[in-house]
Each structure stands twice: as C-alpha cells, then as structure tokens.
Amino acid sequence: MFRSLRTDNPELVRVSVNGHAVEIASGQSVWSALALSGQTTTRKAALSGEDRSAYCAMGVCFECMVEIDGIPNQQACLRRVADGMTIATQTITETSVAK
C-alpha cells in the first residue's frame, strides 16, 4: 500500500482517475495520483493484455504509460497533475497504436 508522508497543507487539485474523483497535492506526479488512490494499473501489456504498473518511476521503462486528457502514451511518472486532468489506464496497447 502506498501512502503519503506529507504533513504540510499542500494546495490540492482535483483530477479524475478512471472516472473517480481524486484530490491530490498540486505538483505531484500523475503516478502518485494513481498510486495514492489505489489504482495502480497504468497500462495493459502489448501482447497478453496483462496489467502493468509503474516500475522505475524515473522515465526509463515506459511501463507507466497512461492516457492523460485523452492522449495516450503519457509517462505518468514524468507528468505532474493539473487541476481538472483526466487520467485513465491505457487499454490500447502500443502495438495497436502503431497500426
């Protein structure tokens, strides 16, 4: 289980994660919005369609690709949340995007 250690009173923004409203400290990564709301599946694997989730958290592995405001292939660990952002698990695989 992921949790936040923050004790300051950060300014919150509202985002939607797979249709659920989530409040999250402004400036945090999109991945943290997923993880702290318990929705850790970021994308489906290319062939098997199995669930995948963030692995490196530093932009290397591309496991954390999600759809942000309708645009696929966004690395959740590198992007920051913004008020009103729509975040969704990427169900199209990168092979189907290529086609």
Partner: peptide, 17 residues
C-alpha cells in the same frame, strides 16, 4: 518496482510503500 523508484517517489512525492 526498483529501489531507485522507491527513492524517487520518496524524494519528489513523499510517497512510500
């Protein structure tokens, strides 16, 4: 995940598992 990921999450988002 990697241990580096644990450290990045801690440093930038104060998030832990």
């Amino acid at each position: 995940m990697t241990a580096g990921a644990a450290q990045v999450m801690l440093k930038s988002d104060a998030m832990v598992a």
